[in-house]
């Protein structure tokens, strides 16, 4: 993510030219843009590609993107068929006029949280923010940070940008930072720290995460393709949940910075966030209107939306 705003802006300008020329990949081939490096959060996608689940559905999928990729803009410009975003980003993007829609929600429980040193002796977000303060590293502009600001008194914390390195956290006992439970806490523990993580979801703000999105236009014009895409995703995730080993090895080869053990531990840590009562009843990746409605209200309350959101337009069930 370092320097990604610059990259993002450059890509943005390229997209403007592309939007005018209407390029795009050849028919039959679809691109899926990730918003981060290959990590367990994308396990099912790489599994679907590795095991041929996409191919069996008649799809030739190219997995692209990476940290800082302006996914929504790429979709809006017609350069990518599918992308990854969080549910709050879907609502915000729709509010800004991008006609995108969620088709598969990987994480039923949001995997983002605040990591602290266990030595602080706090047991919840309430205790953390009522306590002695310190430094809190978070990405500027995150919806859940606005949520935390509204719910807690953050005045005792110096809020600084998160640079996607846990080095400052390891060096400073009074440091707290944003994390993906499947990544940073595992890395911190492996480097000798004793971290404690509090999920944001437990404070009542719980957007679906690692959501697969596409354009409303695509759902309308090629419902069959989208349906086959979602079927392959579900099959990929089923396989990855049962045995993440082979796909972890492939993702590790693409993202050697994350070591093999962190991949293995992350895959285990995320299981309860992906599969729960709801997915057992409705299938992996399924979404509910009620949760989209609640999220819309919360984002409105946080003044992140200019217009009244329509929850039913935010997702399509397959």
């Amino acid at each position: 993510m370092r320097g990604s705003p610059i990259v993002g802006l450059a890509v943005l300008l390229c997209l403007v030219t592309a939007a005018c020329s209407r390029g795009g990949p050849p028919a039959g081939r679809v691109a899926l843009a990730l918003n981060w490096k290959p990590e367990p959060e994308f396990g099912g996608l790489f599994e679907a590609q590795r095991t041929g689940a996409f191919r069996r559905q008649g799809l030739d999928v190219e997995i692209t993107g990476g940290p800082g990729a302006p996914i929504v803009q790429m979709l809006a410009a017609g350069q990518m068929a599918y992308g990854i975003a969080a549910a709050d980003e879907v609502l915000v993007a729709r509010d800004r006029g991008a006609d995108i829609v969620a088709v598969y929600a990987t994480y039923q429980t949001n995997p983002q949280g605040i990591m602290v040193h266990a030595s602080r002796g706090v047991n919840s977000l309430d205790e953390l923010f009522a306590g002695e303060g310190g430094t809190l590293a978070v990405e500027p502009g995150l919806a859940y940070v606005k949520w935390l600001r509204k719910r807690y008194d953050l005045s005792r914390f110096q809020i600084v940008p998160y640079g996607f390195s846990i080095a400052p956290f390891l060096a400073e006992p009074r440091m707290a930072q944003q994390v993906f439970v499947t990544a940073e806490p595992i890395a911190a523990r492996r480097q000798g720290a004793e971290p404690k993580v509090f999920l944001i979801a437990d404070s009542g703000f719980d957007p679906y995460a690692a959501v697969v999105i596409t354009t409303t236009q695509r759902v309308r014009e090629r419902p069959d393709e989208v349906s086959r895409f979602v079927t392959a995703l579900r099959e990929g995730w089923r396989g990855y949940l049962e045995d993440p080993g082979p796909t972890n090895r492939e993702m590790h080869a693409r993202n050697p910075e994350m070591d093999a053990e962190t991949f293995a531990l992350g895959a285990v840590a995320q299981q309860p966030l992906i599969e729960d009562e709801f997915t057992r009843a409705h299938g992996l990746g399924a979404m509910s209107l009620e949760r989209w409605r609640v999220l819309g209200e919360q984002l409105q309350e946080l003044e992140l939306l200019d217009q009244e959101p329509v929850a039913a337009d935010c997702f399509a069930a397959f």
Partner: peptide, 18 residues
């Protein structure tokens, strides 16, 4: 972008909020 404050953080936040 990394140290915090000023127009840099405004740019980051605005990018994230699209």
């Amino acid at each position: 972008f990394v140290g915090g404050g000023g127009l840099g953080v405004v740019v980051l936040g605005a990018m994230r909020q699209q």
